[in-house]
Design a protein around this nucleic acid. Structure first.
Lengths: 95, 95
DNA sequence: GCGACTACCACGGTTCACAAGGTACCTCGG
DNA sequence: CCGAGGTACCTTGTGAACCGTGGTAGTCGC
């Protein structure tokens, strides 16, 4: 989530569609909107309303805060270690 | 879990210690024992009691069933795709 | 007998994913 | 003008899972 928003600010409905196109990712508005709310409550993202440029209701754009960027950095390091551990176990299992 | 047991049959307490030594893995008996129970209930692992060779109470050894091996294969494929997706998003985020 | 270690398991709180349902804005065809 | 359909937000309820805590019981050494 933070990584997607770090590329560029996005609004919720757009994220739902983007994630739906990806593999094995969180899907559904019922998962995503609460997640965004939690991130904002914890100060990792900020939001601002912007009118739609294609008609339709206004959009709530989320962007990553400094704290969010820090959290993303920590997660990236943790993910890297976790990924290697899992890979290692799986390789050994199929040997 | 299945990957660890696929290497060789193990008992619960041993798995707790092994996972504790690994990075970012599930820790604690309160997590592991229910997990093993679920796996057995779903037929992915089988268990058998064996007396300890170093003294102490008997041990419940778990081993992977054919169904478990199939599940492990499916997970490995899914994990591979998931891992690549996450890696890709994280790399783009830091660019 | 008793403390320390090994080994199993159950219980309960909290958190979360997800499906389903709800509100509201806009556009377009008839 | 009005209703259908797309866009976009959010809430609620259910079920599942993690994990801390505590409980039971076996063996060994002193």
């Amino acid at each position: 989530m933070l990584a997607l928003l770090a590329e560029e600010p996005r609004y919720g409905f757009d994220l739902v569609r983007s994630l739906g196109a990806l593999d094995g990712m969180v899907t559904g508005e019922g998962t995503l909107y609460p997640l965004l709310s939690r991130l904002q409550k914890d100060g990792r993202v900020a939001s601002s309303w912007r009118d739609s440029d294609t008609g339709g209701p206004p959009r709530k754009y989320y962007s990553v805060t400094a704290k969010g960027r820090r959290a993303l950095g920590e997660f990236t390091a943790e993910w890297s270690r976790f990924r290697d551990t899992v890979d290692h176990i799986l390789v050994k299992a199929t040997t």
